[in-house]
Simulated assay, not measured.
Amino acid sequence: MNFYSIAMTKEIDTGESPTVSNVMARIRQHIFEGIYAPGQRLIEKDVVEEYGIGRGRAREVLKSLVGEGYLEFEENRGVRVRRLTRQGAIDIGRVREVIEGLAARLAAERTFTDEERSTLANIQAEMDRATEERDAETFAHANRRFHDLIVEVADNSVLTKQLEILRVPIFRIQFQQSFTTASMGERNKDHQRITQALLDGDADAAEAAMRDHVRRGNARLVEFADRLFG
């Protein structure tokens, strides 16, 4: 199970009576999967009916997800799935640069197990092949596993929690169609540098390479169409 799966499903309760945390986890999952799209309204009555909870719990769910940044409240319009402004996306990217860089540093400072080294090498090989074949979908899946693995190896619960919020699924869903084969070559060169630094145990190089990687991705936001932003 990868970082995103853990983040989305860790609170899911299999009991018959849905809890607030259970419903929150299910809504996060639906946002991540694109079932709830950026900008889509979530109405209290619909939450009550769909998830089988009372109105009080439904209000608590929506309020909590607003607090976590998955939803946003608009005066006289209610609650909707968060849709980022261009500046908001850039601000998230700037903070992610620091925290993702720290994740790479912490991972490099640890001694990779043989299994972790093999997994990292295999993911990098998959990204190399996808880049050569201009297979954007395969590259995107491997890219996600690449970043997930680094966070898992870093093994820092505070960092993991912060990235769970900053790597907002809404952010990925909103812009996933805008990352095309055009940027794959540059992104994979970044990955190769990060991978080598991690395998060498070079914490300074790993952090610098990761920060450069996230910074370049953030710079591409200025090229995205206005329709993608709130």
Results as ranks from 00 to 15, higher is better:
Ala37Gln: 15
Asp202Arg: 00
Ala140Arg: 09
Gly67Asp: 13
Pro169Glu: 03
Asp114Gly: 13
Arg167Asn: 13
Phe175Lys: 05
Leu198Thr: 02
Arg82Tyr: 05
Gly34Lys: 12
Gly185Ala: 05
Glu223Pro: 00
Ala89Tyr: 03
Glu49Met: 00
Tyr51Trp: 11
Gln162Val: 08
Arg211Val: 05
Ile90His: 12
Thr19Asp: 09
Phe3Arg: 00
Phe179Val: 02
Leu42Cys: 14
Gln29Lys: 12
Leu106Gln: 13
Phe146Cys: 00
Glu186Pro: 00
Arg55Thr: 08
Thr138Asp: 04
Glu133Lys: 10
His191Leu: 02
Ser118Phe: 04
Gly230Ala: 15
Asp128Ala: 04
Thr160Pro: 00
Ala136Val: 09
Arg211Asp: 06
Ser64Tyr: 07
Ile90Phe: 10
Asp226Thr: 06
Gln40Gly: 10
Glu75Arg: 12
Tyr4Thr: 15
Leu198Pro: 01
Ser17Trp: 13
Val20Pro: 02
Arg167His: 09
Asn2Lys: 08
Pro38Cys: 10
Lys63Pro: 00
Gln196Asp: 12
Met210Leu: 01
Arg105Ala: 13
Arg193Gln: 09
Ile173Tyr: 15
Ile90Gly: 07
Ala208Val: 03
Gly93Cys: 03
Arg57Ser: 15
Phe112Gly: 01
Ile92Glu: 14
Ala209Tyr: 01
Leu149Tyr: 01
Arg41Ser: 14
Ser21Leu: 12
Thr113Ala: 03
Arg59Ile: 01
Ile170Cys: 13
Arg144Asp: 13
Ile12Thr: 15
Met184Phe: 04
Leu149Cys: 03
Gln162Phe: 08
Pro38Ala: 11
Pro169Trp: 00
Val66Gly: 10
Ile173Gly: 15
Thr85Arg: 11
Arg193Asn: 05
Met127Ile: 01
Glu50Arg: 14
Gln29Thr: 13
Gly15Cys: 06
Ala206Gly: 04
Ala206Asn: 05
Val222Asn: 14
Asp204Leu: 09
Gln174Ala: 03
Leu166Tyr: 03
Arg110Asp: 10
Leu149Arg: 01
Gln174Arg: 03
Leu71His: 04
Leu102Ser: 12
Leu106Val: 05
Ala25Thr: 08
Lys45Phe: 11
Gly39Ser: 09
Arg215Asn: 07
Met184Pro: 04
Arg105Cys: 12
Glu50Asn: 13
Ile53Met: 04
Arg26Gln: 15
Gly78Pro: 02
Arg227His: 06
Phe171Asp: 12
Asp190Glu: 11
Thr85Trp: 08
Arg216Pro: 03
Glu115Thr: 06
Phe224Pro: 07
Lys45Glu: 14
Pro18Arg: 09
Ile173Glu: 14
Gly67Tyr: 02
Arg144Tyr: 10
Arg220Asn: 08
Ala130Leu: 00
Glu109His: 07
Asn76Gly: 05
Ala136Thr: 08
Ala108Met: 08
Gly67Ser: 09
